[in-house]
Amino acid sequence: MRVTESMRLANHQRYLNEIAGKLDDTQRQLASGRKIERASDDPTAAAVALHYRRDIAYEAQMRRNIESGIAFMNVTEAALEGATETLQRIRELTVQASNDTLSPAERQTIAREVDQLIRHLAQIANTQFGDAYIFSGTATDTPAYSITGDPPTAITYQGDSGLRVRQISREAQVPVNLVGSQVFGTTFDDLIALRDALASGALGPAIEPSLSAIDASLDRVLSARAELGARINRFEAALQQSETTDLNLQQLRSDVEDVDLAQAIVRLSSEEVALQAALGAIGRASSLTLLDYLR
């Protein structure tokens, strides 16, 4: 092929452009740390990367859902622990009161303590988490129990039986709340009856039935705690699962999107060598002409 000046010039320009373009690509990748900056850089990889990114964001939200659910349930658990202690204290007092040797004054004292404990239990039943009354079902803007009279003559459930359901994994929608009316049942009515009986000086046999009512209340609270414990375990398992999934997804996303630094640096230096070689060749080629050899 006949080689001409403009051809040589065009070739040099093209080689230099090509090498400089590759060098620029590698430098940009090294600076950004990313292989794909636009979908057109690698459409297939971009499709996969978008998929991973979406799943990563979704899993992160699932963990948010789980963690705030666990927080909600931990508050519920603490409330139920308080309710258990309160009921146990009331049970002790009731056992004492069923002893006929107690004086009327002592019974009054017990009645007053039971009254205080009832109020405390009502407070527990009206526990809030954030803005929500946790035992009100979904009617979380109203206290679970309304208290009538002082001393209370009636403590009435005013929530609903709704469940607060949330997504904790792709497949699972799980409630986090326990409905107050199911946890406490007739507890408050039973306890008010007990207090009134104690205040009126009733003797052992009249108080006995209350004892079994208290045991039933304790049973309800304990089974609620067992249910709650199982749910918390489930949430924690889902959390772990999501964390594992996240690690895998991050790895996969990075494989698709991120630059392999070692590889990129090796490529950069080989491209620099190529550029130097091309510049050297051009410099030498253009300095050679016939004119150098003519007189």
């Binding site: 979908a39 978008l50 964001a57 939200q61």
Partner: peptide
Amino acid sequence: DPSDLGLSSVLASFWNAWHDVVNTPE
């Protein structure tokens, strides 16, 4: 896209915001 600032991540944040309302509707 794909990037941390792309429309896809804005869309993901939007769905996630609904989950946050699910968690604490009040």
